[in-house]
């Protein structure tokens, strides 16, 4: 019992540290937000988002902008630990290494959810569609969990490489495809108002990959930060 509270406290401490650092600078969140909006505007011109095509591509456009913005956040979250030797300090702390992973992952998740919470209403207003449906929000949360779960692990690896910023998207995008496909297809189905029977297989696929992408990093994160 005592150990589990220690674990939880360590996770919260790391989450709090990341949030506090971000609240003082607000560099990352503003960069992610502006970038996500820029991607949506770029799509507006690239795809000619008139009302007819919009219905079929909305979920794709949203997810691509979330994922691009998320990469910025993931790259940054590990690079800042690396640059000033903060990671060594974290590793010296007498806590389970997976607590570090969970803390970083939750911080990344919070950043991503904040970006999504701002982008969704803006998109709704700009394109005059109501995106605030419970099903879509569920997909956004589940998709973000899967993305951030494996993204935090791979970002920790990419931060150690010579080609760090370049390497993360190359490692992350192909691995994340199952989550992305399920999230895009599921969101599109919820937006189109499909019956639960049509959506359930995507929700199940997404849940399965969320569990996998949380469980595997938990087991292997030790080996990634080990010196």
């Amino acid at each position: 019992m005592k150990e589990s509270t220690g674990f939880g406290r360590a996770v919260l401490a790391i989450l709090w540290k990341d949030l506090a650092a971000e609240l003082r600078g607000k560099e990352l969140l503003s960069a992610m937000l502006v970038f996500a909006l820029l991607v949506i505007l770029a799509f507006n011109f690239a795809l000619d988002l008139d009302p007819k095509t919009r219905a079929s591509v909305t979920s794709g456009v949203l997810w691509v902008s979330f994922i691009f913005a998320g990469t910025l956040g993931l790259n940054r979250s590990m690079a800042t630990e690396q640059d000033r030797g903060c990671l060594d300090g974290l590793l010296l702390a007498p806590v389970d290494r997976s607590a570090i992973y969970f803390g970083k992952m939750l911080a990344n998740l919070v950043f991503m959810l904040i970006v999504e919470a701002v982008v969704l209403p803006i998109y709704s207003a700009l394109y005059n569609v109501n995106l605030f449906r419970p099903g879509l929000l569920l997909m956004v949360v589940l998709g973000s969990v899967g993305y951030v779960a494996v993204g935090t692990l791979l970002a920790a690896m990419a931060a150690q490489a010579r080609t760090r910023d370049m390497l993360l998207p190359l490692l992350l995008f192909p691995v994340i495809i199952p989550v992305l496909i399920a999230a895009v297809k599921g969101s599109a189905a919820f937006l189109a108002g499909s019956a639960w029977a049509d959506v359930s297989s995507w929700v199940n696929l997404l849940l399965a990959y969320d569990v996998l992408f949380l469980a595997v990093p938990l087991m292997v994160f030790d080996f990634v930060v080990e010196e």
Binding site: P174, V175, P178, V216, P217, F223
Partner: peptide
């Protein structure tokens, strides 16, 4: 480190093969 990271990536990458 190269061997460890590659091993981790081989495991994570294989998760998408069933799909």
């Amino acid at each position: 480190r190269r061997a460890r990271y590659a091993a981790v990536y081989a495991i994570v990458g294989f998760l998408s093969v069933p799909l």
